[in-house]
Amino acid sequence: MADKPRIKLPKEAKKGEIIQIKTLVSHLMESGQRKDAQGKPIPRKIINKFSCEFNSKPVFSCALEPAISANPYIQFDARIDEEGTFRFAWTDDDGSVVTAEEKIALKA
């Protein structure tokens, strides 16, 4: 999961505005249901959790199962009451966490 996550949100919003956030990360989401060429089961390896915080407060999160498609796409909303920083985190079955940050300003 070395690739940079792709994130799209506006650079600024009016106070109280609800914005849409789109995220996409590169990951095989190996389901644990497949077998390799020798017939041995390929062990499960997925992103099992995604979370988004704004100024350290939880906005949206989800627990993911192997029924999520490869290269997980997650879209959700956030209400903006102040300027600040979004922090996104994707947690892999192997314990590694990929994080990203995006700032948003308030429109005058």
């Binding site: 609800i18 914005i19 949206f60 989800c62 796409y73 997650i74 959700f76 956030a78 209400r79």
Partner: peptide, 9 residues
């Protein structure tokens, strides 16, 4: 803070 209970996966 989600503002809306909407999501796409």
């Amino acid at each position: 803070m989600s503002g809306k209970a909407e999501a796409s996966i």
